[in-house]
Simulated assay, not measured.
Amino acid sequence: MTQAKQVLALARAKGVLIATAESCTGGLISAALTEVAGSSDVFDRGFVTYSNQAKQEMLGVQAQTLTDFGAVSEEVAREMASGARLRAGVGLAVSVTGIAGPGGSEFKPEGRVCFGLALEGRDVQTETVEFGAIGRAQVRQATVAHALVLLERALHQA
């Protein structure tokens, strides 16, 4: 069973609706989930918020958070996940914001992705993964795979 199928089966068993908030993946997590037939009973929506303005307008990310920490930060990932969960009215949301490449800087290198996970009734969890300069497509695919793992772990706690 694929990771997406496992996530959807667990969400179905737990009665949890899911939303995504994606920046660097541009909707690939949503695509992975909706690739599975019947996903509409547990996948509610995906927010693709590539620009800072979209993050603010669609998810309620604070301008000050973006100014203080930058778009690629656990602080922004936290606000993205929380905003997606609350605005969609779902039990679980995952967020991703990162630098898929090419490029980056010494402070925010290519391959850095920050994740947020908002599960109803729990504090929002965040983490940063350094995938390295493995190429844009590979960073995006690794991000999708990791987001699905995070969703599965959260659903085991739901």
Results as ranks from 00 to 15, higher is better:
Gln157Met: 15
Glu35His: 15
Gln138Gly: 03
Glu106Phe: 10
Ile29Leu: 07
Val48Tyr: 10
Gln138Val: 10
Val90His: 07
Ala158Ser: 14
Ala9Glu: 11
Thr126Asp: 02
Ser73Glu: 07
Ala71Cys: 03
Gly98Phe: 00
Ser39Tyr: 08
Ala88Tyr: 05
Thr126Ala: 05
Glu152Trp: 13
Val113Asp: 02
Gly83Val: 01
Thr128Val: 15
Ala147Asn: 13
Ser39Asn: 06
Ala93Asn: 06
Val7Leu: 09
Ser40Gly: 12
Val42Gln: 12
Gln64Ala: 10
Gln138Phe: 05
Gln56Phe: 02
Val36Phe: 04
Ala147Ile: 11
Thr49Val: 13
His156Asn: 14
Ala4Thr: 06
Ala118Asp: 11
Asp44Phe: 15
Ala158Gly: 12
Ala37Ile: 09
Arg45Gln: 11
His156Gln: 15
Phe47Ala: 05
Ser82Trp: 11
His156Ser: 15
Glu35Pro: 00
Phe69Arg: 03
Thr128Glu: 13
Arg78Trp: 11
Val7Ala: 11
Glu57Leu: 14
Lys14Trp: 04
Ser51Gln: 04
Gln64Gly: 06
Gln62Asp: 12
Arg45Met: 08
Ala133Tyr: 05
Ser51Asn: 07
Ser105Pro: 00
Tyr50Val: 03
Val61His: 02
Leu92Arg: 05
Ala81Ser: 12
Ser39Leu: 11
Leu92Asp: 13
Glu79Cys: 00
Glu152Asp: 15
Phe69Gln: 07
Glu75Cys: 00
Val113Leu: 09
Ala19Trp: 13
Glu75Leu: 01
Val113Lys: 00
Leu117Arg: 14
Gly15Phe: 09
Thr20Ala: 13
Lys108Gly: 04
Ser40Ala: 15
Arg12Glu: 14
Arg78Val: 03
Ala71Asp: 00
Gln62Gly: 03
Gly91Ile: 03
Ala88Ile: 05
Val144Met: 09
Val76Asn: 00
Ser40Tyr: 11
Ala142Trp: 01
Ser51Arg: 03
Leu59Lys: 02
Phe115Met: 13
Ala19Ile: 07
Ala137Trp: 08
Arg12Ile: 06
Ser23Ala: 04
Arg78Thr: 06
Met1Leu: 12
Arg85Asn: 04
Ile134Asn: 12
Gly91Thr: 05
Ala19Met: 06
Glu22Gln: 10
Ala63Gly: 07
Arg112Leu: 14
Thr49Ala: 08
Gln62Asn: 14
Met80Gln: 07
Val113Gly: 02
Gly15Asp: 10
Gln6Ile: 14
Leu119Thr: 07
Thr25Ile: 12
Ala81Pro: 13
Gln141Thr: 08
Arg85Met: 07
Ser40Asp: 12
Phe47Thr: 07
Thr143Arg: 01
Glu120Pro: 03
Leu8Val: 09
Val72Gly: 00
Glu127Gln: 14
Leu117Phe: 12
Thr143Pro: 08
Thr65Ser: 11
Asp68Gln: 15
Phe115Ala: 04
Arg122Thr: 09
Ala145Arg: 09
Ala93Arg: 10
Leu117Asn: 07
Gly27Asn: 10
Glu130Ser: 14
Gly116Ala: 04
Gln125His: 13
Thr2Trp: 11
Leu119Ser: 04
Cys114His: 04
Arg136Asp: 00
Ala71Thr: 00
Val129Gly: 01
Glu57Trp: 08
Gln125Ser: 15
Glu120Val: 04
Ala32Leu: 06
Gln157Tyr: 05
Ser51Pro: 01
Ala31Ser: 14
Gly15His: 11
Gly83Thr: 07
Met1Tyr: 09
Arg140Gly: 03
Leu150Pro: 12
Pro102Leu: 12
Gln138Ala: 13
Thr128Asp: 03
Ala37Trp: 08
